[in-house]
């Protein structure tokens, strides 16, 4: 496998380069906030290094981390659908290096270049489906004391 971010791993090179014309490098310090729940989802990131925690604000308690994302993974899909608001918050657990993509420009590119748009949306849909499936499995609490784990 290549070291390309998963979103772009199998994207034809021409399309990948076209998408990358919109990207910029962006670093975040440890503890830095990438976005807050409810904020405007006007960009997304492909993580090059480091780890980002996704959290949910729970009144009266500290933010609950529900998942972390690391190298090669995509951070953010709320930018795809109206109303373009983040469903979760995101903080850097350590210094994080990313490629940052502006959401509006990427959406415009997808509209103008429907082939690229279709390929990109296919990959985003697969990503969302994968995370949904992972979340469902975690709901099973597989490692609970009376799970089906061989010892």
């Amino acid at each position: 496998m290549t070291a390309w971010p998963l979103l772009l791993d199998t994207l034809p090179q021409v399309q990948r380069e076209r998408l990358f014309t919109l990207a910029g490098e962006r670093d975040f310090p440890a503890g830095g906030t990438l976005f807050d729940e409810g904020g405007v989802a006007d960009r997304f990131w492909l993580i090059r290094s480091g780890e980002v925690a996704l959290d949910v604000y729970v009144p009266g308690r500290r933010a609950q981390v529900v998942e972390t994302l690391g190298p090669r993974q995509q951070l953010g899909w709320s930018w795809i659908f109206p109303p373009y608001r983040w469903h979760l918050g995101a903080r850097a657990l350590c210094p994080v290096r990313t490629w940052e993509f502006p959401a509006a420009e990427v959406r415009e590119l997808c509209t103008a270049d429907t082939e690229l748009g279709y390929e990109l949306m296919l990959r985003c849909a697969a990503l969302i489906a994968d995370r949904l499936q992972a979340t469902r499995l975690r709901l099973l609490d597989l490692y609970a004391p009376h799970g089906s784990v061989p010892s």
Binding site: M1, L6, V66, E67, T68, P71, R72, L93, A134, L137
Partner: peptide
């Protein structure tokens, strides 16, 4: 905890297999 959170398969994305 300062490490990863999520299903073990998400770690597959972190290794260059």
């Amino acid at each position: 905890w300062r490490g990863s959170v999520g299903l073990v398969t998400t770690l597959l994305d972190r290794v260059d297999t």
